[in-house]
Design a binder for these strands. Structure first.
Lengths: 345, 345
DNA sequence: CTGAAAGCGCTTACAG
DNA sequence: CTGAAAGCGCTTACAG
C-alpha cells in the first residue's frame, strides 16, 4: 500500500508480489523476466503470488526504467483501405514472433495530422517507426524525426528515397504499365479517373506517368478528377457519370483503384455501355475487390505481404543498429482480366 | 546530461529545456501543460527553447507520474474485416476530439490470443478498453480484467451481457430476420453457408437463429460450413461449389457475410445458375461489398458508425466514473436487393 | 542466490 | 509567479 493515495493506481506492483512471496521486489523482477539465477523454490513461490494477484507488468515503468520499448508505430493514410490494412496485417504478423507490438495511426493524407501522429508516436519512445509515403511531409515532421533519431522506415512510395529505408512499388512504373497496355490495344482516346490526387502523391505519380506515356504516343487524354469524392465504388460511379455526360469518343479508362473501377463499371452497365467492347476499364491494387461476379478487373497487383514483411524486418534491423538497403522497390504485376481486351502480343 | 549514460535515452527532457530557458524543470512542465500561473515572458522563453530542442513530452513518464493515460485500447477479431475497420474508424474519430488515442489489437477469434492481447493492453494502463464480443472468453481473461478494474466496454455481441456496457446488434434477431424473409418468399428448402463458426460466436448465433426459425416452419435446412475456409469471396465460392455438387433442390442460401455471398453468386453464375430466379441469395453486413456491378445483395445492414460512437462515449463515461447503460442493442435493418425475389407483403 | 541504492522523466502536492 | 521534495513502478549496475 503506498503512503500517498494517488488516483488511478491500479493493479498489483512488484512490491505487492514480493510481499506475498516474502522476497524483495528485485527478486520478483528477476523471476518474471527470467533473468539472473534464482532458486527453483523461490521462483515457484513468486510465480504463484504473481498469478494469484493477477500481476501485470507496468510497461510504462519498464520502458522508462530500461529506455527500451516493444512498440513499433505504423502510420498509414487509412485503415479501411484494403491495401494498407493488408500491409498492416503483414507487419504485425512479422513483428509478433519477436514480441514487438504494433501501434497504428491514420493520417488521412493530411500533412498536419501526419505531424501530430508522429509527435504522438515519438512521445511513447517506440522501438521503431513505419511511415507510409505519398503524403506531403512537413519540414517540422522531418525535423522532429531527425532530432529523435528513431529507427524509421518508409513504405509505399518506392520512387522517393527518404529516411534510412524506403520500401514500396514504383508508382511511375505502374502508371506507365497501364498506359502501355492501352497503347498496345490500339486505343486512341483514353481517360483517367481519380480522387484526392492533391493529397495522395503516389496516386498522383501514377496518374502523371500514365498521362505522359499516352501523350508521348500521341494518344488523346482526359482526366476526370475531384478532390473530395470518396475513393470507393460510389466515387468511381459519380465521376464516370460525369465522364459519360461531358465527353465522347473515350475508349478506355484507368481508375485510381479497383473499388472506383468497379463503381465505374456499374455505372457503364446501367447506361447500357458494354465493357470491354465499348469501353475498356482498368484499376489498380489487385485486392479481393478486383473480382466481382462476372467482372475480373484488369489491374496491377503486387505482394502487400512482401512489403509488410520487408518493412518489419528493416525496422528491426535499424533498431538493432544494423545497416539496411536504402531503397527496396517492390515489383508491380500486370493482371489481364476481362474488363479490357487483351492486346495480341 | 545525466550522470550515468543509459542506453537509448533519446530526445530532450524537461530538464534540458529548463536549462536552455533558465528555469526549473517544474516551470517548463507547467508552461507546456498550460497549468498554473507563469509570466508571459517566461512562457515565451520556455516555448522557444522547447521548439528549438525539438522537445517531445515523454508520455511514458507522464502516465507513470500522473497515473492516467490517454490511450484507449480496442481489440477486434480482424482489422481487414470491413465491419470492424468501420467500427474502429468511428471509435477513433469520436475519441480524437477528447485527445484520446486508439491502440488496436487483433484476436483472430482466438481466445488465447485475446488473453495475451488484453494482458498486453493492461500493461500500458490504458484509460479504457473496448473489446469485441463473439469470442469465447477465457476465465483467466475475465479474471485479469476484473483485478485491474479498467473501464471496459464490449461491442458487437448485443445478445450477451458482459462487463459494464455491451453495445451491438442482436445476432439472434438478424438470423431470424433472414429466415423470415425466405419463409415469406415461400421457399421450402434453404441452405446456410459460413466458415469458422466454432470461433465466431456471433456468426454462430445468427446461423442458429436462422436454422431454428426455418425448422419451426417445417422448411428444409442444410448447413455447408467449414472451420478453415477464408471468410472472403473465395471461401464463399468454394463452399458454394460443394453445395451445388452435393445437394439438390435448394432454393435459397444465406451466407455468413456479403463477401462470401458475392463469391457464391460468382460460382452460381459460372455454373449457369440464375440468381435470384433459380437460387435466392442473402448476405450479412451491408458494407460497400453489398453492391457489385449488377448485383445488389439482399442483406442486413446497421450503422457501424453508431456502434463505434456509442462504444467510445461509453468508455469515456466509465473512465470518468459515470454510470452507463449496461445493454445498448443496435438495430438491424433488412435490405432488399436483387439477389432475392421480394416477397409480396 | 538475493537485495539495497540510484535513476528513468515526469507529476502531484506543497512551500515560498 | 516559481521551485525543491517525494513519488509513480520499474530496471540497471552493484554489493554481498
Amino acid at each position: 500500500m503506498s503512503k500517498t493515495t494517488r488516483p488511478g493506481s491500479r493493479g498489483a506492483t512488484l512490491a505487492d508480489v514480493g510481499r506475498a512471496a516474502n522476497v524483495s521486489p528485485m527478486t520478483v523482477s528477476k523471476v518474471l523476466r527470467k533473468t539472473g539465477r534464482i532458486s527453483e523454490k523461490t521462483q515457484e513461490r513468486v510465480m504463484q503470488a504473481a498469478v494469484s494477484l493477477g500481476y501485470v507488468n507496468n510497461q510504462l515503468a519498464s520502458f522508462l526504467g530500461s529506455a527500451t520499448s516493444d512498440i513499433v508505430c505504423v502510420l498509414i493514410p487509412s485503415a479501411s483501405d484494403s491495401v494498407f490494412s493488408e500491409i498492416l496485417s503483414s507487419i504485425s504478423e512479422t513483428l509478433r514472433p519477436f514480441d514487438l507490438r504494433t501501434f497504428v495511426g491514420e493520417s488521412n493524407f493530411n500533412p498536419e495530422i501526419e505531424f501530430e501522429q508522429v509527435r504522438s508516436f515519438l512521445s511513447i519512445r517506440p522501438a521503431g517507426l513505419i511511415l507510409s509515403g505519398g503524403v506531403k511531409r512537413l519540414a517540422k515532421t522531418d525535423d522532429i524525426l531527425d532530432k529523435h533519431g528513431s529507427a524509421t522506415v518508409q513504405i509505399w512510395d518506392g520512387d522517393t528515397r527518404s529516411g534510412a529505408a524506403n520500401i514500396g512499388p514504383s508508382h511511375k512504373v505502374a502508371g506507365r504499365m497501364m498506359a502501355e497496355h492501352f497503347i498496345k490495344a490500339g486505343l486512341k482516346n483514353v481517360a483517367y479517373i481519380g480522387s484526392e490526387l492533391g493529397a495522395d502523391l503516389c496516386a498522383a505519380q501514377r496518374a502523371q506517368a500514365f498521362e505522359r506515356t499516352l501523350r508521348r504516343h500521341g494518344i488523346g487524354f482526359t482526366a476526370i478528377t475531384s478532390e473530395c469524392v470518396p475513393r470507393q465504388a460510389k466515387g468511381g460511379a459519380w465521376l464516370t457519370e460525369q465522364m459519360l455526360d461531358d465527353h465522347t469518343g473515350i475508349e478506355g479508362v484507368h481508375f485510381l483503384n479497383d473499388a472506383m473501377a468497379l463503381g465505374g463499371i456499374r455505372t457503364m452497365y446501367q447506361r447500357g455501355l458494354n465493357v470491354p467492347d465499348q469501353m475498356q476499364v482498368t484499376g489498380f491494387n489487385g485486392t479481393s475487390l478486383a473480382t466481382s461476379v462476372r467482372t475480373q478487373l484488369t489491374t496491377i497487383n503486387m505482394s502487400y505481404t512482401d512489403i509488410g514483411e520487408a518493412a518489419a524486418q528493416s525496422v528491426m534491423s535499424l533498431a538493432r543498429g544494423e545497416a539496411v538497403a536504402a531503397s527496396q522497390v517492390q515489383e508491380s504485376c500486370f493482371v489481364q482480366g476481362n474488363s479490357t481486351i487483351a492486346p495480341q502480343s
